[in-house]
C-alpha cells in the first residue's frame, strides 16, 4: 500500500552568504563570539496533501512557486522544516534535468546500475524491455552516455524508472525535453499505472499535459496551494 501524507508542512531553504559558506570565516567568527546564521527563504508554506493509491496529481505554477520543493518533500529528499511527512511504498523520483547517471558508462551499464539503485534485480529480460521501450537505435546500447542527446537520455531514464513499476513516481518538468511521439508513449505508460494502486505526481508548466495524465491539479503560488482543479474525465482513467 502506497501513501504520501503531508501535514501542515513548511520548508525553509537556507540562503548562506559566501562568508557563511566558509569554514575558516565561520571558525574565526565563532572564536570572536559572533555567530551568524544563514537567512532562509520559505519555499513551502503550510501545505497539507494526502495522496492515496491511485492518486495522480499535477503541480502547476510559475517558476519558484514551490513545485520542485514539494516533490522533494514528498520524495523524502528534503526533510520538512516544520510539519510531518509520511511516506509508504517504493518511491522513484525523476526530478530536475540534472542527469542522475554516470555518463562515462554505457547505456546498458547504466540500466543495470540504476535498477540496482532502485532495489530491482536487473534480469536480461528487464534490461532488454527497457531498451526496447526507449526506441533508440541498437548501436547506442553499448555506447557511453556521452554520445547521447538530452532527449535520448530522458527516454532512457524514463524507461528505467518506470519499467519496474514504482509504487510512487514523482516527476518534475520533464517530458518537455523528449519529442511528441515519446511523450504520448510515456503518457500511455503513466495511465496504465492507474489500476495498479500507485501514486503519481508530476510538476509542469504545461497545463494541457497535466490535464492529460492527472486526475487532480494543484495550483501553486509562493509555496502555497492556491487552487485545486479536478480533471473531469481523465483520459484513459
Amino acid at each position: 500500500m502506497s501513501l504520501i501524507d503531508l501535514e501542515d508542512v513548511i520548508l525553509d531553504y537556507p540562503v548562506a552568504s559566501p562568508e557563511q559558506l566558509s569554514f575558516k570565516r565561520t571558525l574565526v567568527d565563532r572564536l570572536r563570539g559572533r555567530r551568524s546564521l544563514p537567512s532562509v527563504i520559505r519555499a513551502i508554506d503550510h501545505v497539507s496533501i494526502r495522496l492515496e493509491p491511485g492518486a495522480r496529481i499535477g503541480l502547476y505554477g510559475p517558476n519558484g512557486s514551490g513545485k520542485s520543493s514539494l516533490l522533494r518533500l514528498m520524495a523524502g529528499i528534503y526533510p520538512p522544516t516544520e510539519g510531518k511527512v509520511t511516506r509508504e511504498g517504493r518511491c522513484t523520483s525523476l526530478l530536475g534535468l540534472g542527469l542522475g547517471a554516470n555518463i562515462e558508462l554505457s547505456a546498458h551499464d547504466n540500466i543495470v546500475l540504476l535498477l540496482r539503485f532502485e532495489g530491482v534485480e536487473p534480469t536480461a529480460q528487464l534490461v532488454e524491455d527497457i531498451w526496447r521501450f526507449t526506441e533508440l537505435d541498437r548501436k547506442f546500447f553499448h555506447l557511453s552516455l556521452r554520445h547521447f542527446s538530452t532527449g535520448m537520455m530522458m527516454r532512457l531514464f524514463f524507461a528505467i524508472s518506470t519499467a519496474p513499476h514504482p509504487e510512487i513516481l514523482l516527476m518534475d518538468e520533464w517530458l518537455s525535453v523528449v519529442d511528441e511521439n515519446f511523450v504520448s508513449k510515456a503518457e500511455e505508460r503513466l495511465r496504465s499505472y492507474v489500476g495498479k494502486a500507485s501514486i503519481f505526481a508530476i510538476a509542469s508548466h504545461n497545463l494541457w499535459l497535466l490535464r492529460g495524465v492527472c486526475k487532480q491539479i494543484l495550483f501553486l503560488e509562493g509555496g502555497k496551494v492556491v487552487n485545486t482543479e479536478t480533471v473531469e474525465a481523465p483520459a484513459g482513467g
Binding site: R72, I77, C91, S93, L94, G98, G100, D172
Partner: peptide, 14 residues
C-alpha cells in the same frame, strides 16, 4: 553526484 542525491533521491551514504 548532486543529481543522484537531489533529483533521484538516492542516499548520500552510497
Amino acid at each position: 553526484n548532486a543529481p543522484m542525491v537531489k533529483d533521484r533521491g538516492f542516499s548520500p551514504d552510497i
